[in-house]
Amino acid sequence: MPNFITTYDLVETRPDPHETFLEKAMARGWSVWKKGSDGRLYRLPNTTLTGSFANQDLAVAALKATRADTQRELGVKVSMEKWIVAQYSGSVFASDEKERP
């Protein structure tokens, strides 16, 4: 399946939606972790996720559903001011946070 990367900005609300958004995103196929060339997992920058989806429409739908899931759970309006979903075939990245074995 093709790989996608997304980055987004959430409007600040009370309660803060970020933690719930990440939980819901993972349930929808997105991840905050990216495998490095050494086989270890490294955390992506804040508000950046990757995932494998059959096509871009499904990746976008998963991101939008994540926002709706978060809104439903928190009971407050959750808005994404800006977002992008892009397909990629390779990546180069740096992270100072590794997943612990």
Results as ranks from 00 to 15, higher is better:
Pro45Ser: 11
Gly29Lys: 10
Thr13Asn: 03
Arg43Glu: 04
Arg28Met: 13
Pro15Asn: 08
Gly29Pro: 03
Asp38Tyr: 09
Arg14Tyr: 13
Thr47Glu: 04
Asp38Pro: 03
Thr7Val: 05
Ala27Leu: 13
Asp16Gln: 09
Pro45Asp: 03
Gly36Glu: 09
Pro17Arg: 13
Leu49Phe: 12
Lys35Thr: 15
Leu49Thr: 05
Thr48Ser: 14
Tyr42Arg: 09
Lys24Ser: 10
Val32His: 10
Trp30Glu: 01
Arg43Ser: 02
Pro17Gln: 12
Ser37Ile: 09
Thr47Val: 01
Tyr8Leu: 06
Ser52Asp: 07
Leu22Gly: 01
Thr48Met: 14
Ser31Thr: 10
Glu12Thr: 12
Thr47Ser: 14
Thr6Ala: 04
Glu19Lys: 14
Ser52Gln: 15
Asn46Cys: 07
Glu23Gln: 11
Lys34Asp: 02
Leu22Val: 11
Tyr8Ala: 07
Trp30Asp: 02
Thr47Asp: 06
Arg43Asn: 02
Tyr42Gln: 04
Leu49His: 05
Arg43Met: 09
Pro45Leu: 03
Asp9Arg: 10
Lys35Val: 11
Leu22Thr: 11
Asp9His: 06
Thr6Gln: 00
Ala27Pro: 00
Lys35Leu: 10
Arg14Pro: 00
Asn55Ile: 01
Pro15Glu: 10
Thr48Cys: 15
Met26Arg: 11
Thr6Leu: 00
Thr50Val: 15
Thr7Gln: 12
Ile5Trp: 13
Ser52Pro: 00
Thr6Trp: 01
Gly39Val: 10
Glu19Val: 11
Thr7Ile: 03
Ala25Asp: 04
Ile5Phe: 13
Phe21Val: 01
Phe21Met: 11
Leu10Glu: 04
Thr48Leu: 12
Phe53His: 02
Ser37Tyr: 06
Ile5Asn: 02
Leu41Ala: 09
Leu10Ala: 08
Phe21Ser: 05
